[in-house]
Structure formats: C-alpha cells, structure tokens
C-alpha cells in the first residue's frame, strides 16, 4: 500500500500556467477527489501523477518513492480513463488481464485475478466478448476491472463516470465506493461533478485556476467553504452570498441583525439555501420570491433579498407562490463570513 505525495508541482504550457506550485498529500488508503470546473488543472495534475504529462517543476512520490522522472509503466499504478480506453481488439478477459500479462504473471495468477476483478464488477458473464459488443456502462466496468486486476496500491481515475447516464452513474458510484473501500486502494479521482466528489471522497481538493482552493472532508467543504468560489461551486444550489455593510461589529439587513467579524466596511455573508428558515413576519430577512420550483421533498425558491439574488430551500407546510415576501432567519452557526475584497473566509468565524 502507498500514499501519494505531490510536492510543489508546477506546470506551464508556454506562457500559460496550468498548475501554480501545488502540493497535496493523499494518505495510504485514502480517497481524494480533485474537484473543479473544466480548465482548472485537475486532469493535468492527475496526468502528471500518472506520468502521461511532464511537470515543469516539483516532485511526485508514490509510497515514498520518487517517481517524478519514471515512465508511466514503472510507476506501478493503475488508471481508469474518461472514455474507458478498453482495447477494442481484445476480449474483455484479455483487457482485464492486460496489466498482469505485461507484468508476466503466471497463468494461474492471471486467471485468479481476472476472475476476481470481473466478479467485483459483476461482469463474469462478459469475459468472452469484445468491448464493441458492450454497453457504455459495461465498458466502464471493464475499465475498472482492468485497473483492479493488477491489485494496484494507487488508483487514478479521470472522470470515470461522466459518460454514463444519471441512473447508471449513481449505481456505479455506490459500487466503486464499496469496492475501493474493501480493497483499501489509495485513490485520486478527478471529477467536475460535486455530487460525485461529495459522495465518494474522504477528502475533496477543490481546484480553481491551477491551484487548490480548499482541501477538506466533504462536509467541511460544504459547510465551511474556504472561498466564495468553493461555496458557489460545491453544493446544488450553490451557497448564497450576500454583500452587506458592517457597522460596530454587526450587520443589519431588514430586521435581521447579526454579529460579524468586521467592525466596518463591506463583508460577504455566506449561507446555504437550506440553512435559511422561515421566521415570523417583521423579524428576519425579507425575501421576495420570484420563482418557485417544487422538487418533491422541498421547494426551491429563487428571489431577492437585500437587492441580491439568493436561493432558498423551503420545506415548510404552507404553499409559497411567486411574488410573496417571506421572512427568513439563518440557522445559528451556519453562516460563513467572507472577506469582500479577496473572497476568502475570515478566520475564526463559523
């Protein structure tokens, strides 16, 4: 077993900087998701770890061994690609056996591990087929089985579920989590889907503009985002951010008065849509409802408060209609105060 240490890795393509000096430690057996919008450098980082991309500077250690200058085949890791990359000219069996064959494993070992990996991914019945005869979901299982068959200590995954339909994605997500937890495989997982990152990872590294904005367990990222970007990227709907004016260590919006960590000047109040609860009229924050989207378990309300757009998850008894004004009060301790200038969380709050 092995952890991954990414030390001060920087990558530039000509004058374009894809990764700004970046460090990240993935503990042995840990599942870390690299989450971010396209172009944030997450795939580049994964490919540098894999050895498929060169770094401009810095080091990569796998299990304490410096692999920075080794070709991919000597790094002893496995990878699942976004578009599967299962070899079309080989049967499913040979695809899964590929890594073992390259390692010159003996026949009984190949047989045993192929069967085991196929069993984990429930594709034993497909071993004799070619990938061309499989559905997208089945091919994805083959790709994962091929990675698991070599019993890797480190597994890299590049948006492995993004080509599957929603239902299949949810199913595979749960299965992956179970299988990888069982195997104790150290996993670095690239995704732009925050649900996937939240659901799978032990820790999430939220990336933006070539740097890691926040590295924390899913709920910490969700509850206490380190920056405005993290708050608005993680969670659906995104976190609400209200710019307010501080005076004497507090902000007052409508009838709502909250203590804040700034004595004066502008400050940003971050609050999750579900952390705003209806309050009695005349108290709390006035919220003018513009759109109501009933979603079954709750309704998603979009509207304006303090002349800024926010979203509210409304689970109250009474039906709400557009044009109404509600009064909202945030749940105590669920407010994140952000610096208005640099968008970073103000230390010591929340």
């Amino acid at each position: 077993m092995a952890g991954i240490a990414i030390e001060n890795v920087r990558k530039s393509f000509g004058s374009m900087t894809a990764l700004k000096e970046l460090s990240l430690n993935v503990e042995d057996g840990e599942f870390v998701a690299l989450l971010g919008p396209s172009g944030c450098g997450k795939t580049t980082l994964l490919r540098i770890v894999a050895g498929l991309e060169t770094r401009t500077s810095g080091r990569i250690l796998v299990g304490g061994r410096d692999v920075s200058d080794l070709p991919p085949r000597e790094r002893k890791l496995a990878m699942v690609f976004q578009n599967y990359a299962v070899f079309p000219h080989m049967t499913v069996y040979e695809n899964i056996a590929f890594g073992l064959r390259m390692a010159k494993a003996d026949r009984t070992k190949v047989e045993r591990q192929v069967q085991r990996a196929a069993g984990l991914m429930h594709i034993e019945h497909l071993l004799g087929r070619h990938p061309g005869q499989l559905s997208g979901g089945q091919r994805q299982r083959v790709a994962v089985a091929r990675a698991l068959a070599v019993e890797p200590s480190v597994l890299l995954m590049d948006e492995p579920l993004s080509n599957l339909d929603a239902l299949l994605r949810m199913e595979m997500r749960a299965e992956l989590k179970a299988v990888l937890r069982e195997a104790g495989t150290t996993t670095l997982y690239v995704t732009h889907d925050q649900t996937e990152a939240m659901g799978l990872a032990d820790r999430i590294a939220v990336m933006h503009g070539g740097r890691i904005e926040q590295l924390a367990p899913p709920m910490a990222v969700y509850r206490t985002p380190a920056t405005v970007f993290v708050g608005s990227f993680v969670g659906a709907p995104p976190m609400n951010f209200l710019r307010c004016q501080a005076a004497d260590g507090a902000v007052a919006i409508g009838a709502l008065k909250l203590a804040c960590p700034r004595n004066s000047g502008e400050i940003v109040m971050g609050v999750r849509a579900e952390d705003l609860l209806p309050a009695t009229a005349g108290t709390g924050l006035p919220f003018e409802v513009r759109v109501v989207e009933p979603l079954g378990s709750h309704a998603l309300l979009t509207g304006t408060a303090h002349r800024q757009q926010i979203r509210v998850v409304y689970a109250g008894e009474r039906d709400v209609s557009a044009g109404e004004t509600l009064h909202l009060a945030p749940i105590a301790g669920r407010i994140c105060w952000m610096d208005a200038a640099d968008g970073r969380a103000i230390e010591g709050t929340t």
Binding site: L52, N83, A85, M102, V150
Partner: peptide, 23 residues
C-alpha cells in the same frame, strides 16, 4: 487511433515495443 489506448497500455506496464505490437 485515440491516444488513450497507447496511454492505457503504458500505464499498465507495456514497454514501447509492446505498446506497438499489442495495441
């Protein structure tokens, strides 16, 4: 030939020659 095939072979331990002949 999508380049991922070559990359996958490389990741799973194929030497350049094996990549050429097998993939």
């Amino acid at each position: 030939i999508p380049k991922e095939y070559g990359e996958a072979a490389e990741i799973f331990g194929a030497t350049p020659w094996q990549r050429f002949t097998r993939v």
